[in-house]
């Protein structure tokens, strides 16, 4: 009779391990789709594409021109239309400069003031000069310059 408790103990251990194994298996089977769904966009390669801004000749001029455009991209889990706003100018030699209007501080849209020759951000009073460098306010770095190209007379910017 003395070995009886040991047998019971063995059975209990066996059931404990069996329960843990089955529970773990069900847990993993459920976790794969859940975690996969939640983090899958993090592993997607960033797709960059060229977006058409218009006929290059019409955008020439020393003053900044504001252009709003939309482009479709897969952002996160879903395909969406992103709206962007940029300032375009040409440097006189036919090459273009395109600045994103998104302030490098916290993402508000900056406004070009022709009389002062500066960009202003309404949210926290940032000021950038005509080359996009920080003049005043909190931004940590200059305005973002987007990659550009002209093909068949059309101006394109690279969007991600």
């Amino acid at each position: 009779m003395t070995d009886m408790p040991e047998e019971g103990e063995q059975r209990r251990t066996f059931f404990k391990m069996g329960m843990a194994a089955i529970g773990g298996l069900i847990g993993i089977a459920m976790a794969i789709p859940l975690v996969g769904f939640a983090i899958s966009p993090a592993f997607r390669k960033a797709s960059k594409k060229w977006v058409d801004l218009g006929i290059a000749d019409l955008l020439k001029g020393s003053q900044y021109k504001k252009i709003n455009y939309t482009f479709s991209t897969k952002d996160g889990w879903v395909e969406t239309n992103k709206r962007r706003s940029v300032y375009v100018t040409d440097q006189g030699d036919g090459t273009f400069l395109v600045y994103s209007r998104v302030c490098s501080h916290l993402g508000c849209l900056v406004r070009w003031d022709e009389r002062k020759d500066q960009f202003f951000c309404p949210c926290h009073g940032a000021v950038f000069d005509s080359a996009g460098n920080v003049v005043a306010g909190p931004p940590p770095r200059p305005m973002e310059k987007l990659p550009v190209k002209v093909e068949d007379g059309i101006l394109y910017v690279k969007e991600s």
Binding site: P41, A42, F43, R44, A46, D75, G76, W77, V78, T80, K82
Partner: peptide, 19 residues
């Protein structure tokens, strides 16, 4: 990166949008 950090998780994308 911009497409997998904590802000991305908060926004469900890289900009404030429908998601």
């Amino acid at each position: 990166t911009q497409a997998n950090d904590v802000r991305f998780a908060l926004l469900g994308g890289t900009i404030v949008g429908p998601s």
